[in-house]
């Protein structure tokens, strides 16, 4: 119980600490106020990702609760080899993809699509096209994309993760990640032209 009262008994905690320093302080003091700082910094982003992938507010809330409880109980195991945000998002994406896998047995999540129907070298899609799609359209397209493709596009364009970081998070080779990104971009473009064909 003292851990809960600790923030009230101690002086104000500085909020300008880096994420990694906040984790260190939490591990040293077991003070939940440090966890609250991390929660404030990342809850909105984590919720947005959960919602984009799971498509339901209730499921996103449940997922976020589980993810942050997991984070809270495992903060002492955070080694600091990666950034805290990379660790958190890795847990978030893997949790959401596993949820979809359990819920739907979604084949795009379960197995790697090894078909080569879109693999021609001349259909590389520019990042600019994807990033400059306006927000309303982006929401519609993300709603339609399979979870695995959506997750990989969010990792690349929203979180700015490198291919190496994504490969570490998904436990796949860098070439497999590149191929997945390419296919996700192709699906994005296809959906864009199908849904907004009259407005192009």
């Amino acid at each position: 119980m003292i851990n809960l009262l600790y923030p009230l008994l101690t002086k104000e905690i500085p909020t300008d600490l880096s994420d990694e320093d906040v984790v260190k302080e939490f591990v040293l003091s077991n003070n939940v106020a440090f966890f609250d700082i991390l929660y404030k910094r990342y809850s909105g982003k984590v919720f947005g990702k959960c919602l984009s992938i799971l498509k339901s507010e209730n499921e996103a809330e449940d997922a976020m609760q589980e993810i942050f409880m997991k984070i809270l109980l495992n903060l002492s195991k955070f080694s600091g080899r990666s950034k805290f945000s990379t660790w958190l998002y890795s847990i978030t994406y893997n949790y959401c993809i596993d949820s979809i896998r359990r819920r739907k047995k979604d084949k795009s999540v379960l197995v790697d699509d090894m078909s080569s129907e879109h693999d021609s070298a001349d259909d590389d899609i520019e990042d600019r096209f994807i990033m400059e799609t306006n927000v309303k359209r982006l929401k519609v397209i993300l709603e339609e994309l399979p979870a695995a493709d959506k997750a990989i596009l969010l990792m690349k364009y929203q979180d700015d993760f490198s291919i190496r970081e994504i490969s570490g998070m998904l436990d796949k080779s860098e070439s497999a990640v590149k191929m997945k990104i390419k296919r996700a971009k192709q699906k994005f473009k296809k959906l864009h032209s199908e849904i907004f064909k009259n407005t192009l």
């Binding site: 909105g44 982003k45 919720f47 947005g48 919602l51 984009s52 600019r128 990033m131 400059e132 799609t133 306006n134 927000v135 982006l138 929401k139 993300l142 596009l153 969010l154 364009y157 929203q158």
Partner: peptide
């Protein structure tokens, strides 16, 4: 550079 993925994230927050 325009990146509407970031804008979407801000809106969701």
């Amino acid at each position: 550079r325009i990146n509407n993925f970031k804008e979407l994230e801000r809106e969701q927050i």
